Computed example of a mutant assay.
Amino acid sequence: MSPTRTAATIFNVDFLRGITALAVLVWHYQHFFYPSAGVSLAVTDRPLQPFYSSLRWLYEYGANGVQFFWVLSGFVFFHAYRSRDNISLKEFFINRFSRLYPLHLMTLLLVALLQTVSQYAVGHQQIYPFNDFYHFLLNIFLASHWGFQKGYSFNAPIWSVSVEIITYIFFFAYLKTAGIRLCSALVWLAVIYVAFQGPDTNSFAQCTILFALGGLVHELQFWINSRTPKWVSPLGAITLTTSLLVYLYIKGAWNPTVVVFALFPSLIWLAASAETIGFSSGRIGELVGNTTYASYLIHVPIQVAFMTVADLFLIDRMDIAKTPAFFVFYIAAVFLLSHFIFKHVELPSKRRIQAWLNPALRNRAIQEPLIQPLKS
């Protein structure tokens, strides 16, 4: 049985999450070409990957999908908690913990097992090099990217969630002290920007600033929709997005600042605005969005398992990874497995944990909009 969704669910935002997850998958496809842990694919060799000419932007800049998720997370949290400023710290913590931790723990243990098998069977580990007990403890506490690490470890994509946890603390403090409104969102963004002295200080600074930016986008859209005809917001979003795309096309180069701090927010604004006038991805957006977190955490275990088996049987996995057929099979397998995991692992574990930690949330918890970040 699928969870009850609120009337405020934004399917187009769900769809954007899924598309961004695909971008991360394409970016991480290069893992198949790592000869051993920590030995990456040279930039000059990236064209070896299948469909490179068509997917070049994803192969080159798919890593910016993490920044997109952070902006999206801010939009989603403002959407989900705008009328819930009376939420307790306990309930907020349970919602986050039950949403993020079960699958993280499962995939962490799976990768730890697979890396041990790889070390024993082929004499080296795969993709990420720092898979010792110290980094395992960091991962257990979702602290894998808090500055205590020597590098990427175990199921490394969880690093973006590790960083975002700190942002949740700032958000909850903002929610309880100021309340979600346009003016407070603008002030919060300004204060955070000044406090962190710009977006490039570190991952924590960038995450929190982008999260606040996503929240501001939500409040701007809410403000426009409540005071103007419903077509004004989509028209503004289309105009801004088109202008930014034309600018980037004329420049002929990927400008991270423009893309992350302008194009990403405008795309989210466009997706949400389109929903208000009836252009909705509907069921497709829901299906795609539901696979996001699972696809984010399951693709590295799949890669480690495949690479270990290939190395064990002396199969040239790079030759296999170069083929378009394998690329299509891999992407399809990740999303199909992610759909299964969402239905049979994520949702059941989330409900059990919520019921265990706070029985009063048993009926309310599943009403929470599922446009959650990756963590969205």
Rank of each mutant, 00 (worst) to 15 (best):
A23S: 11
F171G: 00
S295M: 05
K230M: 03
W27G: 03
P234N: 12
A37W: 04
A333S: 04
I366L: 07
Q49D: 14
H79K: 05
T292S: 08
G147Y: 15
A112Q: 03
L213E: 15
A333R: 06
G65P: 15
L235T: 15
I371F: 07
A325N: 13
V328S: 04
Y134I: 11
Q372V: 13
I158W: 02
A294V: 11
L347F: 05
L89H: 07
V345K: 01
H135W: 10
Q221K: 06
Y59K: 06
R99E: 02
F313S: 09
Q206M: 12
T308F: 00
A294C: 08
E275C: 12
R364T: 13
P256Y: 09
I19V: 10
N225K: 07
N202D: 15
S233G: 08
G278P: 11
M307N: 02
E164K: 00
S40Q: 09
F154Q: 03
V161L: 15
L110A: 10
F75Y: 12
Q206F: 02
F130M: 10
C183W: 07
A173Q: 04
V300E: 09
F264T: 00
L100F: 09
L370H: 08
V76W: 02
I277P: 15
C183V: 14
Y152P: 14
D319F: 03
L267C: 13
F326C: 14
Y296S: 09
E286T: 13
K375L: 10
W269N: 04
L347P: 14
D200M: 10
I268P: 00
P301D: 04
L337I: 08
A272M: 10
Y101F: 07
G282I: 02
E346R: 01
S153K: 05
V259A: 04
I158R: 01
L48N: 14
V259G: 06
F15Y: 15
Y61C: 03
N131T: 01
A112H: 01
G74Y: 04
N12I: 07
L213P: 15
L114T: 15
E60G: 04
I284C: 05
F326R: 09
F33E: 00
S203H: 11
V217K: 05
K176D: 07
F222W: 04
L110H: 00
F211Q: 12
F69V: 00
T257P: 08
F342N: 14
I180M: 11
T177L: 08
D200I: 09
H218V: 03
T323R: 07
Y59T: 10
T291S: 11
A365Y: 06
L235D: 06
S338A: 05
N86T: 12
N155E: 06
R227P: 15
T276I: 13
G282M: 00
E368Q: 05
A42N: 14
L16A: 07
F306W: 00
F92E: 14
